[in-house]
């Protein structure tokens, strides 16, 4: 079927491509000395994000192979993805090849949630540092008073804020006492 529709220009293109491919293939092992230079020249084009992207899709494929493939095709993520999807094995990178940045063994996905950006604690968030040592008696009085609904908007706002602060400070005091009791025991 394909042979029937093949014409001469197509045939020529095919031959040229084949010749180039064969030449390129055979020139590789010969230039062992020049390859590291070639690799480093190519590497700036690939980024960790690209490797990560593919690595997350195909965790079974080695990151080094992905990086090597990317560095050879100029950082084309789609092409690498298609190659893996089509079932062709990625070429094993030469020993001299190194992934651009030394962040090669990134933490596995399971570890990342624990190590993510930290949230500020409640004392910092609500600016309570100065109120930590305040006596609790007066505070509980205030709390019962502030439970009522006020007609005044500003009073409502400050009541709500008081209730929030009291809730956090009470929790902190309770936990502190518990910790102390535990330390004594």
């Amino acid at each position: 079927m394909a042979e029937q529709t093949l014409n001469i220009p197509q045939l020529l293109v095919f031959i040229v491509v084949t010749v180039l491919a064969v030449r390129w293939y055979f020139s590789k092992p010969a230039g062992a000395g020049t390859r590291p230079a070639a690799a480093t020249r190519a590497t700036p084009r690939i980024s960790q994000a690209q490797i990560d992207q593919i690595s997350q899709m195909f965790p079974q494929v080695e990151r080094r192979s992905i990086a090597w493939e990317l560095s050879r095709n100029g950082g084309n993520v789609t092409a690498v993805t298609e190659k893996i999807l089509s079932g062709r094995a990625l070429e094993t990178p030469p020993v001299s090849f190194q992934i651009p940045t030394p962040r090669t063994n990134t933490p596995s996905r399971t570890a990342t949630p624990v190590a993510k950006a930290e949230q500020p604690d409640l004392i910092t968030r609500y600016n309570l540092a100065s109120k930590i040592s305040k006596a609790p008696e007066s505070a509980s009085e205030e709390q019962s008073k502030s439970k009522a609904w006020s007609q005044d908007r500003n009073e409502r706002q400050s009541n709500l804020q008081k209730r929030r602060e009291e809730m956090i400070l009470a929790a902190r005091r309770k936990l502190e006492e518990k910790e102390k009791a535990k330390a004594k025991a």
Binding site: Q119, L122, I168, A171, R172, E179
Partner: peptide, 8 residues
């Protein structure tokens, strides 16, 4: 996390 959030 509870302890950390209360600044202890």
């Amino acid at each position: 996390n509870v302890k950390k959030s209360l600044g202890l």
